[in-house]
Amino acid sequence: MKHTYVITGMTCNGCRTSVEDKLNAIKGVLNVIVDLEKAEAIIEMSNRISIDTLQKALSDKYSISEKNESAPSAVEEVQRPSNVIEEKKSELKQLFPLFLIFGYITIASVLINYRPWSGTDFMLDFMGLFYIVFSFFKLLDLKGFPESFKMYDPLAKVMPIYRWVYPFIELALGILFLMRIQIPIALIITLVILGITTIGVTRTLLNKKTIQCACLGTALKLPMTKATFIENSIMMVMAIIMLIKTYN
Protein backbone atom coordinates (compact mmCIF):
# COMPACT_ATOMS: atom_id res chain seq x y z
CA MET A 1 0.00 0.00 0.00
CA LYS A 2 1.11 3.54 -0.79
CA HIS A 3 0.29 6.70 1.12
CA THR A 4 1.17 10.34 0.45
CA TYR A 5 2.37 12.58 3.28
CA VAL A 6 3.15 16.28 3.59
CA ILE A 7 6.54 17.03 5.16
CA THR A 8 7.53 20.54 6.27
CA GLY A 9 10.99 21.75 7.27
CA MET A 10 12.96 20.47 4.28
CA THR A 11 15.20 23.13 2.72
CA CYS A 12 17.69 21.29 0.53
CA ASN A 13 18.60 17.95 -1.06
CA GLY A 14 20.45 17.05 2.12
CA CYS A 15 17.16 17.33 4.01
CA ARG A 16 15.41 15.22 1.39
CA THR A 17 18.04 12.49 1.61
CA SER A 18 17.95 12.52 5.41
CA VAL A 19 14.14 12.20 5.47
CA GLU A 20 14.22 9.35 2.95
CA ASP A 21 16.87 7.48 4.93
CA LYS A 22 15.04 7.89 8.26
CA LEU A 23 11.70 6.78 6.86
CA ASN A 24 13.20 3.87 4.92
CA ALA A 25 14.70 2.59 8.18
CA ILE A 26 11.25 2.11 9.74
CA LYS A 27 10.13 -1.50 9.97
CA GLY A 28 7.35 -2.13 7.48
CA VAL A 29 8.41 0.60 5.06
CA LEU A 30 9.21 -0.79 1.62
CA ASN A 31 10.13 2.37 -0.27
CA VAL A 32 10.12 6.14 0.17
CA ILE A 33 10.14 8.81 -2.53
CA VAL A 34 10.46 12.41 -1.30
CA ASP A 35 9.63 15.37 -3.54
CA LEU A 36 11.46 18.42 -2.15
CA GLU A 37 9.62 20.98 -4.27
CA LYS A 38 6.16 19.68 -3.39
CA ALA A 39 7.20 18.96 0.23
CA GLU A 40 5.65 15.51 -0.10
CA ALA A 41 6.65 11.90 0.49
CA ILE A 42 5.11 8.82 -1.08
CA ILE A 43 5.63 5.89 1.31
CA GLU A 44 5.07 2.31 0.25
CA MET A 45 4.49 0.10 3.29
CA SER A 46 3.62 -3.53 4.00
CA ASN A 47 1.20 -2.55 6.77
CA ARG A 48 -0.39 0.62 8.05
CA ILE A 49 2.12 2.74 10.04
CA SER A 50 0.89 5.46 12.38
CA ILE A 51 1.81 9.12 11.99
CA ASP A 52 3.40 9.06 15.47
CA THR A 53 5.79 6.31 14.38
CA LEU A 54 6.76 8.23 11.25
CA GLN A 55 7.23 11.47 13.19
CA LYS A 56 9.41 9.82 15.85
CA ALA A 57 11.74 8.58 13.12
CA LEU A 58 12.36 12.16 11.97
CA SER A 59 14.19 14.94 13.78
CA ASP A 60 12.31 17.84 15.36
CA LYS A 61 13.20 19.93 12.31
CA TYR A 62 10.60 18.11 10.24
CA SER A 63 6.86 17.68 10.62
CA ILE A 64 4.89 14.98 8.81
CA SER A 65 1.15 14.74 8.21
CA GLU A 66 -0.98 12.63 5.92
CA LYS A 67 -2.17 14.34 2.77
CA ASN A 68 -5.94 14.21 2.66
CA GLU A 69 -7.37 14.82 -0.79
CA SER A 70 -10.91 13.72 0.10
CA ALA A 71 -13.71 16.12 0.87
CA PRO A 72 -13.84 17.34 4.49
CA SER A 73 -16.39 15.85 6.81
CA ALA A 74 -19.11 17.82 8.57
CA VAL A 75 -17.06 17.79 11.79
CA GLU A 76 -14.02 19.12 9.92
CA GLU A 77 -16.12 21.90 8.40
CA VAL A 78 -17.27 22.96 11.89
CA GLN A 79 -13.71 22.93 13.18
CA ARG A 80 -12.23 24.73 10.17
CA PRO A 81 -12.54 28.34 11.53
CA SER A 82 -10.57 27.54 14.70
CA ASN A 83 -7.96 25.69 12.65
CA VAL A 84 -7.58 28.68 10.35
CA ILE A 85 -7.05 30.97 13.36
CA GLU A 86 -4.37 28.66 14.74
CA GLU A 87 -2.64 28.53 11.35
CA LYS A 88 -2.63 32.33 11.13
CA LYS A 89 -1.17 32.64 14.63
CA SER A 90 1.52 30.11 13.77
CA GLU A 91 2.30 31.92 10.52
CA LEU A 92 2.66 35.28 12.29
CA LYS A 93 4.94 33.67 14.86
CA GLN A 94 7.14 32.25 12.12
CA LEU A 95 7.28 35.64 10.38
CA PHE A 96 8.24 37.53 13.56
CA PRO A 97 12.00 37.48 12.75
CA LEU A 98 11.26 39.04 9.34
CA PHE A 99 9.16 41.83 10.87
CA LEU A 100 11.82 42.39 13.55
CA ILE A 101 14.58 42.75 10.95
CA PHE A 102 12.46 45.16 8.91
CA GLY A 103 11.86 47.18 12.06
CA TYR A 104 15.56 47.40 12.88
CA ILE A 105 16.45 48.40 9.31
CA THR A 106 13.76 51.09 9.29
CA ILE A 107 14.80 52.53 12.67
CA ALA A 108 18.49 52.53 11.70
CA SER A 109 17.71 54.32 8.41
CA VAL A 110 15.63 56.95 10.22
CA LEU A 111 18.32 57.58 12.87
CA ILE A 112 21.01 57.98 10.22
CA ASN A 113 19.02 60.60 8.29
CA TYR A 114 16.73 62.36 10.77
CA ARG A 115 19.00 65.41 11.30
CA PRO A 116 18.67 66.89 8.77
CA TRP A 117 15.94 64.69 7.35
CA SER A 118 16.51 63.36 3.84
CA GLY A 119 13.92 61.09 2.30
CA THR A 120 16.25 60.20 -0.55
CA ASP A 121 19.09 59.17 1.73
CA PHE A 122 16.64 57.29 3.94
CA MET A 123 15.53 55.11 1.02
CA LEU A 124 19.10 54.53 -0.16
CA ASP A 125 20.24 53.54 3.33
CA PHE A 126 17.16 51.35 3.81
CA MET A 127 17.87 49.47 0.58
CA GLY A 128 21.56 49.20 1.40
CA LEU A 129 20.96 47.82 4.89
CA PHE A 130 18.23 45.52 3.54
CA TYR A 131 20.65 43.91 1.10
CA ILE A 132 23.53 43.68 3.58
CA VAL A 133 21.42 42.03 6.30
CA PHE A 134 19.57 39.65 3.98
CA SER A 135 22.77 38.60 2.17
CA PHE A 136 24.35 37.85 5.56
CA PHE A 137 21.67 35.29 6.40
CA LYS A 138 21.94 33.71 2.95
CA LEU A 139 25.71 33.39 3.27
CA LEU A 140 25.34 31.52 6.56
CA ASP A 141 24.27 28.48 4.56
CA LEU A 142 25.59 28.95 1.05
CA LYS A 143 25.00 25.27 0.28
CA GLY A 144 21.40 25.11 1.45
CA PHE A 145 20.22 28.48 0.09
CA PRO A 146 20.45 27.65 -3.66
CA GLU A 147 18.24 24.59 -3.25
CA SER A 148 15.56 26.59 -1.44
CA PHE A 149 15.83 29.58 -3.79
CA LYS A 150 15.37 27.57 -6.98
CA MET A 151 12.04 26.24 -5.73
CA TYR A 152 10.31 29.53 -6.55
CA ASP A 153 12.66 31.90 -8.41
CA PRO A 154 12.18 31.40 -12.20
CA LEU A 155 15.74 32.37 -13.14
CA ALA A 156 17.31 30.30 -10.37
CA LYS A 157 15.46 27.23 -11.70
CA VAL A 158 17.10 27.44 -15.13
CA MET A 159 20.48 28.99 -14.20
CA PRO A 160 22.33 27.12 -11.42
CA ILE A 161 25.11 29.74 -11.31
CA TYR A 162 22.55 32.49 -10.59
CA ARG A 163 21.25 30.84 -7.42
CA TRP A 164 24.85 30.45 -6.18
CA VAL A 165 25.93 34.05 -6.83
CA TYR A 166 22.66 35.70 -5.74
CA PRO A 167 23.79 36.34 -2.12
CA PHE A 168 26.91 38.06 -3.46
CA ILE A 169 24.80 40.17 -5.83
CA GLU A 170 22.78 41.33 -2.83
CA LEU A 171 25.97 42.08 -0.88
CA ALA A 172 27.38 44.11 -3.77
CA LEU A 173 24.12 46.07 -4.16
CA GLY A 174 24.10 46.82 -0.44
CA ILE A 175 27.60 48.27 -0.65
CA LEU A 176 26.71 50.33 -3.73
CA PHE A 177 23.67 51.88 -2.02
CA LEU A 178 25.44 52.62 1.27
CA MET A 179 28.55 54.04 -0.46
CA ARG A 180 26.42 55.95 -3.02
CA ILE A 181 28.24 54.29 -5.94
CA GLN A 182 26.56 53.79 -9.34
CA ILE A 183 23.10 54.26 -7.84
CA PRO A 184 21.16 54.21 -11.17
CA ILE A 185 22.73 50.86 -12.13
CA ALA A 186 22.04 49.44 -8.65
CA LEU A 187 18.40 50.57 -8.88
CA ILE A 188 17.91 48.92 -12.28
CA ILE A 189 19.47 45.66 -11.08
CA THR A 190 17.19 45.80 -8.03
CA LEU A 191 14.11 46.08 -10.21
CA VAL A 192 15.25 43.21 -12.42
CA ILE A 193 16.21 40.64 -9.76
CA LEU A 194 13.37 41.44 -7.37
CA GLY A 195 10.92 41.58 -10.26
CA ILE A 196 11.91 38.06 -11.32
CA THR A 197 11.66 36.77 -7.75
CA THR A 198 8.27 38.45 -7.27
CA ILE A 199 6.92 36.63 -10.33
CA GLY A 200 7.96 33.32 -8.75
CA VAL A 201 6.53 34.29 -5.36
CA THR A 202 3.22 35.29 -6.96
CA ARG A 203 2.97 31.96 -8.79
CA THR A 204 3.68 30.08 -5.57
CA LEU A 205 1.01 31.99 -3.66
CA LEU A 206 -1.58 31.54 -6.43
CA ASN A 207 -0.84 27.81 -6.62
CA LYS A 208 -1.10 27.64 -2.81
CA LYS A 209 2.10 25.63 -2.53
CA THR A 210 3.60 25.20 0.93
CA ILE A 211 7.30 25.92 0.53
CA GLN A 212 9.93 27.73 2.52
CA CYS A 213 10.97 31.28 1.72
CA ALA A 214 14.71 31.71 1.17
CA CYS A 215 14.77 35.49 1.76
CA LEU A 216 16.63 34.92 5.04
CA GLY A 217 18.50 31.87 3.79
CA THR A 218 17.91 28.62 5.64
CA ALA A 219 19.03 29.81 9.08
CA LEU A 220 15.49 31.01 9.83
CA LYS A 221 12.54 28.91 8.71
CA LEU A 222 10.04 31.24 7.06
CA PRO A 223 6.94 30.15 5.13
CA MET A 224 6.30 31.58 1.69
CA THR A 225 3.52 34.12 2.34
CA LYS A 226 2.17 37.47 1.24
CA ALA A 227 4.79 39.07 3.51
CA THR A 228 7.48 37.92 1.06
CA PHE A 229 5.58 39.57 -1.78
CA ILE A 230 5.20 42.76 0.27
CA GLU A 231 8.90 43.00 1.17
CA ASN A 232 9.88 42.73 -2.50
CA SER A 233 7.21 45.26 -3.48
CA ILE A 234 8.52 47.81 -0.94
CA MET A 235 12.04 47.56 -2.36
CA MET A 236 10.78 47.81 -5.95
CA VAL A 237 8.63 50.86 -5.19
CA MET A 238 11.62 52.58 -3.55
CA ALA A 239 13.79 51.73 -6.57
CA ILE A 240 11.20 53.20 -8.97
CA ILE A 241 10.88 56.39 -6.88
CA MET A 242 14.66 56.80 -6.79
CA LEU A 243 14.98 56.23 -10.55
CA ILE A 244 12.33 58.89 -11.21
CA LYS A 245 14.18 61.33 -8.94
CA THR A 246 17.49 60.49 -10.61
CA TYR A 247 16.31 61.17 -14.15
CA ASN A 248 14.06 64.17 -13.43
Rank of each mutant, 00 (worst) to 15 (best):
D35K: 06
L139Q: 10
S135P: 04
A108C: 04
L139F: 10
F130H: 06
Y114M: 12
L100H: 03
D153L: 00
K138R: 09
S63R: 13
I51E: 06
A156S: 04
D60K: 14
T53M: 00
L139S: 09
D35F: 01
F145P: 07
F99I: 13
Q79R: 15
D52L: 04
N83S: 07
Y62F: 10
L98V: 12
F126D: 05
Y152I: 04
R80G: 05
M45K: 13
F137M: 06
E147Y: 05
E91H: 03
L98E: 07
V133Y: 00
P116S: 07
V158M: 00
P72M: 04
F137A: 11
V133L: 05
E69P: 08
F149T: 10
I132L: 10
S46D: 12
K93F: 02
E77K: 15
N47Y: 07
F130M: 13
V158E: 04
E40A: 09
E91W: 00
V158Y: 02
L124G: 07
T120C: 01
M151H: 03
K138F: 01
L155G: 05
L129E: 06
L139R: 06
N113D: 06
Y104M: 13
F102H: 08
Q79W: 01
P116C: 00
L129N: 14
P146S: 03
T120F: 02
A108W: 05
D125S: 15
I64H: 08
